Amino acid sequence: DESNKPILLPNESQSFERSVQLLDQIPSYDTHKIAVLYVGEGQSNSELAILSNEHGSYRYTEFLTGLGRLIELKDCQPDKVYLGGLDVCGEDGQFTYCWHDDIMQAVFHIATLMPTKDVDKHRCDKKRHLGNDFVSIVYNDSGEDFKLGTIKGQFNFVHVIVTPLDYECNLVSLQCRKDMEGLVDTSVAKIVSDRNLPFVARQMALHANMASQVHHSRSNPTDIYPSKWIARLRHIKRLRQRICEEAAYSNPSLPLVHPPSHSKAPAQTPAEPTPGYEVGQRKRLISSVEDFTE
């Protein structure tokens, strides 16, 4: 099969070098950035008060330690540790928490760990991170309901609301924008112990962030949302095809390698009803078989 044979790379090609550099910018793992907010007593309706908090309760602090690993920003190499735009020179604080497994990295933009500057009256330095995160974990210690939209931002799609209760338990629920209701189930609340709260809140936030990324990708319907490693695979396959075309153009005697095509017509299947918005969006999480067989 010609399409699977190794090909020689061009010795000097600026377009090839640019493509390789672009490939280096696509990590081999999925990345997520999640905002974390603490809401104190009497702050449920005040964005400024929430963003001005420099610490929270003892249970909130224990919750943070379970979310991930504490890292010092100045020691991080952005090409190895995903920071979601946090500055490593102290502009966004000294520490944050991050978490990773074999296929993804997540960083938490924690408002109480970011510096509260006197010259920044409206807390814009914090909002440029927190307001651009799709998902926020809100530790609501106010005793009042927290409403979506209290923290203004164009991309605040989903809130994971943590409400501490007695007996070391917590109520965990989801809020989302109306255009996200087909992807996020907000109907079920959970009672979770303090011990298990970081794991549950983190998983709910990661799932909500993946759904938000799919939702946000609708602005470019021709580019369905893939995982990062599938995006790398697609980029490599496009690069291979372009090299083959350039080689055939410079030397017409060489065969032009095309991806294999299936001449056999697909079997006719009964027509199915058109899937609704929710089903269609969830299918976009699934990769096409052509990603692996071309």
Rank of each mutant, 00 (worst) to 15 (best):
P275C: 10
S13Q: 09
N196C: 06
C89N: 13
V257R: 12
K117V: 12
H129G: 04
G40H: 01
P115A: 05
L148G: 15
H262S: 14
S212L: 07
S217C: 08
D24K: 03
A201S: 04
H262V: 14
Y139N: 00
I110L: 02
Q213T: 11
S142G: 03
D75W: 05
Q154W: 10
A247I: 11
F157P: 02
G40C: 02
V279W: 11
V188E: 06
R195D: 12
H109C: 03
A205S: 04
G182H: 10
H215C: 08
Y38I: 00
T274H: 11
D1C: 10
V88R: 06
M180N: 01
Q213F: 06
H258D: 15
P27F: 03
H258G: 14
E168C: 08
D133R: 03
D79M: 03
L70W: 03
L8I: 09
D185M: 03
S250C: 14
I230W: 07
A111R: 03
G85S: 11
K228D: 14
D179I: 04
H55L: 07
V214A: 05
P252Q: 10
S46R: 04
L165Q: 05
K190E: 04
D24Q: 04
L113V: 03
L51A: 02
V279S: 15
T65S: 14
Q213Y: 07
D1I: 14
V172S: 00
R202K: 05
K80V: 05
Q213W: 12
F95E: 05
C89A: 11
S57W: 01
V162W: 00
L86Q: 15
L233W: 10
L256P: 15
A247C: 14
I286L: 09
K117M: 09
E72K: 10
D102S: 07
L73D: 15
D133I: 07
H258R: 08
R282K: 13
V107G: 02
G84V: 03
R240P: 14
K228L: 05
V289T: 12
K228C: 06
D101F: 00
G280T: 10
Q77G: 12
K117N: 10
P252N: 10
V160Q: 00
I137D: 00
L113G: 03
N196F: 02
G56H: 02
N196P: 01
E2D: 11
K126N: 04
C124A: 14
D120P: 07
D87I: 01
A189D: 12
P78V: 15
I191Y: 07
L206T: 02
D102W: 04
S19I: 13
V138N: 00
E72A: 11
I243G: 08
N4Q: 13
L183A: 05
L9N: 09
G42N: 09
R282H: 12
L197P: 00
A111T: 03
K152E: 15
K126L: 05
V289H: 13
L8F: 12
N45V: 03
A35P: 02
S288W: 05
D87A: 06
E272C: 08
S250K: 08
L23R: 06
K264L: 11
E168P: 01
I137R: 00
E294S: 10
K147I: 07
F134I: 01
N11R: 08
V39Q: 01
R284Q: 13
L165W: 03
L239E: 13
L239G: 09
S227E: 08
D75H: 12
D185H: 04
C169S: 13
T61I: 04
I191W: 05
C244M: 13
F146Q: 01
S219M: 10
I151M: 12
P6I: 04
K127C: 04
D118A: 15
D1G: 06
L67E: 00
G276V: 07
G182I: 09
R128W: 08
V162R: 01
I137Q: 00
L171C: 03
H32K: 01
V162T: 01
F157N: 09
L148R: 14
S46K: 05
Q175M: 11
A111Y: 07
V39T: 01
K190Y: 05
T96Y: 05
Q154V: 13
L37E: 01
I110K: 03
M114R: 04
A35G: 15
M204A: 07
H159N: 15
N53R: 01
Q203I: 08
D223V: 06
I286D: 15
D30E: 13
I50G: 02
I230D: 13
D102Q: 12
P78L: 14
G56E: 01
L86M: 10
G68Y: 03
V39I: 06
L206N: 00
S13W: 11
P259W: 10
P221R: 04
I243M: 13
A189F: 11
Q43S: 02
I243Q: 05
V119C: 11
L256I: 11
E54C: 05
L197W: 00
L70C: 06
S250H: 11
N170V: 01
S13M: 06
Q154A: 15
N170F: 02
V81E: 14
N209E: 03
S15H: 10
T96H: 09
A265Q: 12
I71C: 12
A267Y: 10
P275F: 10
G90S: 09
S15D: 15
P255F: 06
E294F: 05
V138S: 01
G182V: 07
D118F: 11
Y29N: 06
L171P: 01
E294Q: 11
S212Y: 04
L8T: 12
R282P: 13
R195A: 11
L171H: 05
S44R: 03
L48H: 13
H109D: 05
K74H: 07
Y225F: 08
S187N: 10
F292A: 15
T31G: 03
H55N: 07
Y97C: 07
Q281R: 12
S288T: 09
D185G: 08
T274D: 11
E278H: 10
I151W: 05
N53L: 01
A205N: 00
G56T: 02
H100C: 13
K147V: 09
T150L: 04
I103K: 02
S219F: 08
K5F: 15
D223T: 10
S261K: 11
Y249T: 09
R177K: 10
E41V: 06
S28W: 15
S253P: 07
V214K: 01
A267F: 07
V88Y: 05
L285Q: 11
N220K: 08
F146A: 01
L113F: 14
N4A: 14
E290Q: 05
K121D: 14
Q77C: 14
P273C: 09
M210T: 02
Q281G: 13
Q281K: 07
G149M: 04
L254C: 12
T222G: 06
Q105K: 11
V81I: 12
A49Y: 02
P260M: 10
S253I: 10
S193A: 03
A231E: 15
P115G: 04
K126P: 05
H262E: 15
N209Y: 02
N220M: 06
S3M: 09
K283V: 08
V158R: 00
I34S: 01
D101K: 01
S217I: 06
H100R: 13
N4M: 07
K126Q: 05
D92P: 08
E181I: 06
V20W: 06
C89K: 10
L174G: 01
C169I: 05
D179P: 04
P27A: 07
